[in-house]
């Protein structure tokens, strides 16, 4: 564990808590993409299959349980509890255009052609594009609530911090995972224009409103 990865995990944790607070306080899921949350649930389920078979640390297990638990709770809030406030018309990204290519790529490009490794690789590739339905929804509605912007900033920062973690681990431990790094770079790049909007607008108290 290093400071970059710890900050990354805390940023990820913060993002999930911000999202849950937004939903619970406003009792609304307006502006939130249910499809992205379904993709995140797929990512965590595929990645944490070893939750019961390999024990790394208390921290690792607790975080995995928390991430899996909260993402399914979020889906419950979107599609059941606060279903009336879910904006399905604007949440129209075709996720099959993500899942099929990512699934195929995981089969072709992986570290080892073994079921658990391919599923892990699938979760890494899927995570890098899982935010697209959410960004697409914001571009369609033309704006994002400030709290949703904070959620996205924390979520985007988490993988950017992981990139720093991988640089540190390369020099400190000789650890290097090309698949995770490349997917992490793609994932972070997808947030760049949002980061720009966040820093130029939200930090000045304005609201994010894309030219619709």
């Amino acid at each position: 564990m290093n400071i970059f990865r710890l900050c990354g995990d805390m940023s990820h944790l913060a993002a999930i808590i911000i999202l849950l607070l937004k939903m619970w306080k406003t009792r609304s899921v307006a502006g939130i993409s249910g499809k992205s949350q379904i993709l995140f649930a797929t990512v965590f389920t595929a990645r944490y299959l070893d939750l019961f078979t390999s024990f790394i640390s208390i921290y690792n297990t607790c975080m995995k349980v928390f991430f899996i638990g909260t993402v399914y709770f979020t889906i419950y809030l979107i599609y059941m509890k606060f279903k009336a406030t879910y904006d399905s018309n604007h949440d129209s990204f075709r996720v099959e255009f993500l899942i099929v290519p990512v699934g195929g790529l995981a089969f072709l490009v992986n570290h080892e052609f073994a079921p658990l490794e391919i599923i892990w690789t699938f979760s890494i590739y899927l995570e890098s594009v899982a935010i697209l339905p959410q960004l697409f929804m914001i571009s369609k509605t033309g704006e994002a609530e400030t709290i949703t912007s904070h959620y996205l900033f924390a979520l985007g920062s988490y993988r950017a911090l992981y990139l720093c973690n991988w640089i540190y681990r390369y020099y400190a431990e000789g650890f290097f995972d090309l698949i995770a790094v490349v997917a992490g770079v793609v994932q972070t790049i997808l947030y760049c224009d949002f980061f720009y909007l966040y820093i130029t607008k939200v930090m000045k108290g304005k609201k994010i409103s894309l030219p619709a």
Binding site: D9, I56, H111, N165
Partner: peptide, 10 residues
């Protein structure tokens, strides 16, 4: 320098 340990990251 491939990955040495198992999957120890989240």
């Amino acid at each position: 320098k491939k990955k040495k340990k198992g999957k120890d990251e989240l």
